[in-house]
Structure formats: C-alpha cells, structure tokens
Write a protein that binds this DNA or RNA. Structure first.
Lengths: 119, 119
DNA sequence: CAACTATATAACTAACCAGTGGAATAGTCA
DNA sequence: TGACTATTCCACTGGTTAGTTATATAGTTG
C-alpha cells in the first residue's frame, strides 16, 4: 500500500469489505463456493427469502464478486473473484484464534479459582 | 471452512469484515500500520474530527483489532491483529486488478473506435 | 486548588441498508 | 395463446451507524 491513501481509494476498499459484512451474503458466497448454483438452489440452501436472496445476488454481481449465467428459466451464479475465498479463510482463522484465546482465558480463570479455593 | 456455517458464525465473520467496511476506520488502520500513534496524531494524519476518530478507535479496540496503551495524558494505539494487513493487501490487490481491467476495457473500446473510424 | 490539555462520552441528525410482501417480467410448455 | 414457473423490481419499515457539537473525565503543571 502507498503511504497515503486518498479517500476515494479508501472508499473502494471499504466497499469491497462491506460486500462481505452481511451474514446473508456470506451464506450465499459459502453456498457458491461449492459450485455454480441457480437462485432457487441458493434460496433452499441458505434458508433465506427469495426476494432477499435475489437482491443480495444482484449486489454481489454488481460488485463483480460473482458472475451471472442465464440458462432458460434459471439464472446461475458462480464465484467470479477467487480472492473471496482467501479473505474468508483468513477471517475464519482469526475467529478460530479468538475462540481459542477465549477458551484459554476461561480455563485460566477456573484454574485460579481452584487454587484460591485450596489456599 | 465447514460445509455448513451456522448463522452465529456467519455473524462473527460479518462483524470482522464490517470493522473494515468504513473509510475512516481504514484510514486509521493505515495510519497505525506505520507504527504506534496517539489519538492526536491519528486525528492529524487522517484529517478526521477528534470525536469521530475517538469513537472509531474504541470500536476497533473493542473488536480486538487494535490495542490501547495509556501513557500519562496520551493514549497510544497500535495494530493488535496482524491479519488486518493481510486482508488489506488482498483487497488492494483485487482493486488494482479491477482498475487494470477497467483500463484495458477502455483501451479496447478506443482501439475499436479507431478501427471502425478507419473502416 | 486552578488552569490547561488529551481523550472519551452523550445526544442528536441524516443516511444507509436489510428484510418483506406483492407486482412485474421473461422464459417454458401445453 | 394461456397457464405456469423462475427471477427481478418496487415500495415500505425498522434498525444500525457515521458524523457533529457540546460536555465530561482524567492527567499535568503552576
């Protein structure tokens, strides 16, 4: 990254992250990571409303994260940007680390309790 | 990633990304990537309002992305999660790719124009 | 203690966005 | 053409949050 990022570049970056900042969109992306799906399949697999899914698919497509392929009555979507998976994996790693730390902290608290109890 | 992510895990992931989905927060993080800074320095370097910066710093600290160190009258902040830089670099890469593609597309359009003009 | 500085908080406004239901569009099959 | 299905668009509601101004807290220095 350059030393000073102008506001418009920051806005571009923020926009990318914003696309990934919604659970429904992440669920959709997770679904598409398994392979190309049509809207009905995504609706079924994510358990979200159809209009809702359609709207999010449009946002993701407009942002260039997924691509659209029309086949007869169905519309198929697929991951277009391979970086998405990398980003999600990194975030999953940090969350796992967070959870590990939390477990350790609680275990330490319990240990101290036992020591204090004994003393 | 496991095949099916529960909604609470998706919400955790979305929350991480949401922290990075604001230009002001990105500007702050970019500033801290150069090293530890106190609030005044961050305000000066980002050009944002003091209350605004303070609020975002708190959000970032609460989310565990940065850490807080009080020294007398000043409060110093620093990056706590090294993954942030990786995420930002990845996103910068995708943006650069997007821009390259856009330039190529425009250049292609201009080329076609010249060909059509000649024909 | 009083004046001063750095940082944090409170209250408020405006904008944005997720979700929903219903109407509209487009493709398919009889 | 008419019934049917998959998908998209529209209008609305409620909740979230960014930014601002003014105020409060905490540490420092005289």
């Amino acid at each position: 990254m350059p030393p000073h990022l102008t506001d418009d570049v920051l806005e571009l970056m923020a926009g990318k992250f914003r696309m990934l900042s919604d659970p429904t969109r992440l669920a959709i992306l997770r679904c598409l990571m398994a392979g190309e799906r049509n809207v009905g399949q995504v609706v079924a697999e994510t358990g979200r409303g159809q209009a809702n899914v359609s709207k999010h698919l449009r946002m993701l497509a407009d942002a260039g994260l997924i691509r659209r392929r029309k086949a007869g009555l169905q519309v198929y979507y697929a991951i277009a940007d391979p970086l998405i998976e990398k980003l999600c994996h990194l975030v999953c790693d940090t969350i796992q680390a967070d959870l590990s730390r939390e477990v350790e902290r609680k275990q330490a608290m319990l240990s101290e309790w036992r020591i204090a109890d004994r003393g």
